[in-house]
Design a protein around this nucleic acid. Sequence first.
DNA 1: GTAAAATGCAACCTAAAAGTTGCGTGATAT
DNA 2: ATATCACGCAACTTTTAGGTTGCATTTTAC
Lengths: 118, 118
Amino acid sequence: MFHSNAKNGTVKLQNYASVFAALGDETRLSLVSKLTSGRSHSISQLAEGSKITRQAVTKHLRVLEGAGLVHSTRNGREQLYHLDLRPFKDIEEYLGFVSKQWDQALSRLKSFVEDERK
Amino acid sequence: MFHSNAKNGTVKLQNYASVFAALGDETRLSLVSKLTSGRSHSISQLAEGSKITRQAVTKHLRVLEGAGLVHSTRNGREQLYHLDLRPFKDIEEYLGFVSKQWDQALSRLKSFVEDERK
DNA sequence: GTAAAATGCAACCTAAAAGTTGCGTGATAT
DNA sequence: ATATCACGCAACTTTTAGGTTGCATTTTAC
């Protein structure tokens, strides 16, 4: 199954799935929420106050990075993570597409029923 | 972490996570895509042509149902599934919220830098 | 009334996800 | 120079996800 997005790039369902899956975890959602501050955050910053270990946070960040939701750069001994909005926009668009399909299908069904009544 | 949506209901991050997680699987995404036709589909209908067993499809449908993305009704010996757009709208809104936070944070940072230069 | 269809349920298997501990290695502050 | 900070990596454990097979139950078609 395929679907073309705004920039006319063809995106496989698989790509969407990996982005959704990356966001499908409370810990990662709260990491994302911390990263919306605009600034880059180091792993230690992102891990402090957390109930899980720094190493576990690292794993989550790599899942997010694998889905393209964040990128990282090194600065001395720190690894800095920041958001990339593009995949967010992509799935937002996909969700809009699903809604649109559904709405159109419903209105087709509705007019079909109305035609049947005549 | 909390976030209020359009209908002023307070939604926990956990709820979003379960919706994202439900969509974070290729098989379930293609089930959703089948269900956008507007009509209800039975489990057997949804399973035919699939590489996995009918029982596995049932499990996926229950994950979707658990996240509120689909609902089911019984009709004789058939179990019919149909989409519910609300959770789709919810996470679409959440994604918009994240983008907005990020954009605002960036513009604050930008004006901060500009102030520093004066 | 019997066979076939549609489903539910339980037990089981396997692989992956989520998390831990332990240790090693560069950067940095003092 | 030497602690200490920030991190990477590897091994390991536990839990969950995804999938299967087998069988029972309820509808429905003929």
